[in-house]
Amino acid sequence: MNDRKFSLTVMAIFAILTLAVVTFNYWMDPLWNFSHAHEYNDVQLVTDEREQKTANQIYVPKNKDTLLLGSSRSTYIHHDGFKNWKVYNYSVANLSMREYYTMMDFAFEQNPDYERVILGVDFFKSSTQEAEAPRSIQNHVKRVTQPFYRAKNLLSFDLMKTSAQNLQMSADDEITEDRLYNREGDAFARKLSEEETLSDTEDKIKKFESTFYGKSYTYYPRYKEIMKKVHDLHPEAEKMVYTTPISSELFKSLVSTGLYEEYEIWLRNLVEVYGGVWNFMYPNSVTNDITNYYDGHHFYPEVGYYIASRMEQGDNAEAPEDFGVYVTPDTIDSHLKQVKKLVDELN
């Protein structure tokens, strides 16, 4: 073989391999840059939710009327849990309350027709430690809007490994991780036994008591101010707030480390800013059942359906009667008295 034939052969092999990588990555679409769905890409790994969901809004436009923002806990609220609202769930892992503003603003740039925004709020994220550092979605926006962003991803051999993993999981049709997605943007978690759940909850409580609660926690003095800015952004859209329901075991830990007063301050601030809040974070039949969680604070999608139904349907919700209370300035005092009574009954 002469040099010319050798060079052409090498180039042909390289072109075939490149085409194979591009085709496979496009077919699997692990970064959610395209809209196609099939039975072999219906289970998707999390690579970077902020990047994946930000790119998804740009490249796969949404016909939605409701935006949902929250942490990893809120990822388990599925869009079909709402009967009348068309919800896009832009929740991401480890969300800081300082991120709501830029994430909402970006989402409205992509879809100005949102009629309402639902904000999932976590108590432990109201601490100075968790809220003080400025956080923004802008770096992710810059990344996904770079020239040839999608084309460069399709050429990635590293991304091909993720595509292969997604192919295997989709073929097995089994949830084996703490958070996997389908093509509708709904998150799922592997189901643990009660013994595994109790063990994971015990570990999580230890982490919260050493990292987030007790001496590590100081209520962020600007919490109300920043949440007011979020409330005032895009005033044409209705704003709804709900508290994410941690297990009663973890709630007991919050109380035992001396943070019940801060919990009350937090709820009062939310009610003052938003005029009302859907509170799910107190002892009730759902939070008392540890099997509704896989680690004591991340609930399974079944609970997400209860939350969605309660917020949309109110008293007509398909949810346990004692799960979810809409708290207003007129009812905050009586509600907190009831919560305190429920907490005392836990001990």
Results as ranks from 00 to 15, higher is better:
residue 245 P to W: 00
residue 158 D to V: 08
residue 344 D to I: 04
residue 330 D to E: 15
residue 333 D to I: 08
residue 25 N to D: 13
residue 51 E to D: 02
residue 327 V to F: 02
residue 167 L to Q: 05
residue 82 F to A: 07
residue 146 Q to Y: 07
residue 181 Y to P: 10
residue 4 R to Y: 05
residue 17 L to H: 02
residue 314 G to K: 12
residue 214 G to Q: 04
residue 22 V to T: 09
residue 148 F to A: 14
residue 48 D to R: 11
residue 309 S to R: 12
residue 40 Y to W: 03
residue 122 D to N: 14
residue 230 V to S: 02
residue 39 E to C: 00
residue 286 V to W: 01
residue 151 A to F: 09
residue 337 K to N: 14
residue 183 R to G: 09
residue 248 S to A: 14
residue 282 Y to G: 11
residue 38 H to K: 11
residue 179 R to M: 10
residue 99 E to D: 10
residue 54 T to D: 01
residue 271 V to A: 10
residue 188 F to T: 00
residue 93 A to R: 13
residue 275 G to N: 08
residue 164 A to W: 05
residue 230 V to Q: 02
residue 132 E to Q: 12
residue 189 A to N: 07
residue 19 L to E: 06
residue 256 S to Q: 15
residue 211 T to L: 02
residue 58 I to W: 00
residue 248 S to C: 10
residue 64 K to S: 13
residue 148 F to M: 14
residue 155 L to Q: 10
residue 269 N to K: 13
residue 332 I to V: 15
residue 84 N to S: 09
residue 169 M to C: 04
residue 195 E to H: 07
residue 278 W to I: 02
residue 89 N to S: 06
residue 73 R to F: 05
residue 173 D to M: 11
residue 323 F to Q: 07
residue 261 E to F: 00
residue 171 A to S: 07
residue 96 S to E: 04
residue 236 E to N: 11
residue 342 L to V: 00
residue 5 K to W: 00
residue 266 W to V: 03
residue 69 L to V: 06
residue 169 M to H: 13
residue 64 K to N: 12
residue 321 E to K: 14
residue 15 A to L: 15
residue 301 P to D: 06
residue 231 H to N: 14
residue 140 H to I: 10
residue 170 S to R: 08
residue 186 D to Y: 02
residue 125 K to I: 03
residue 169 M to D: 13
residue 50 R to M: 05
residue 260 Y to S: 07
residue 264 E to D: 12
residue 266 W to M: 04
residue 262 E to Y: 08
residue 108 F to A: 12
residue 347 N to I: 10
residue 38 H to I: 06
residue 328 T to N: 13
residue 82 F to W: 13
residue 243 T to K: 02
residue 336 L to H: 08
residue 216 S to N: 15
residue 121 V to T: 02
residue 19 L to M: 13
residue 218 T to L: 11
residue 242 Y to E: 08
residue 322 D to R: 05
residue 250 L to N: 12
residue 307 I to V: 14
residue 205 I to R: 03
residue 92 V to D: 08
residue 182 N to D: 15
residue 101 Y to T: 03
residue 287 T to H: 02
residue 67 L to K: 05
residue 131 A to G: 14
residue 68 L to M: 15
residue 22 V to I: 12
residue 146 Q to C: 05
residue 38 H to A: 06
residue 142 K to P: 05
residue 185 G to K: 04
residue 238 E to D: 15
residue 21 V to R: 06
residue 166 N to Q: 11
residue 149 Y to E: 03
residue 220 Y to E: 03
residue 91 S to N: 12
residue 232 D to S: 09
residue 301 P to T: 09
residue 71 S to E: 11
residue 213 Y to W: 09
residue 174 E to P: 06
residue 169 M to R: 15
residue 130 E to S: 14
residue 298 H to R: 08
residue 46 V to H: 09
residue 239 K to F: 09
residue 13 I to Y: 06
residue 305 Y to V: 01
residue 328 T to Y: 13
residue 227 M to D: 05
residue 269 N to C: 01
residue 273 V to R: 02
residue 1 M to Y: 11
residue 288 N to L: 07
residue 112 P to T: 06
residue 286 V to H: 00
residue 167 L to I: 03
residue 281 M to Q: 03
residue 319 A to E: 01
residue 134 P to Y: 09
residue 141 V to R: 04
residue 292 N to K: 03
residue 49 E to A: 06
residue 340 K to W: 08
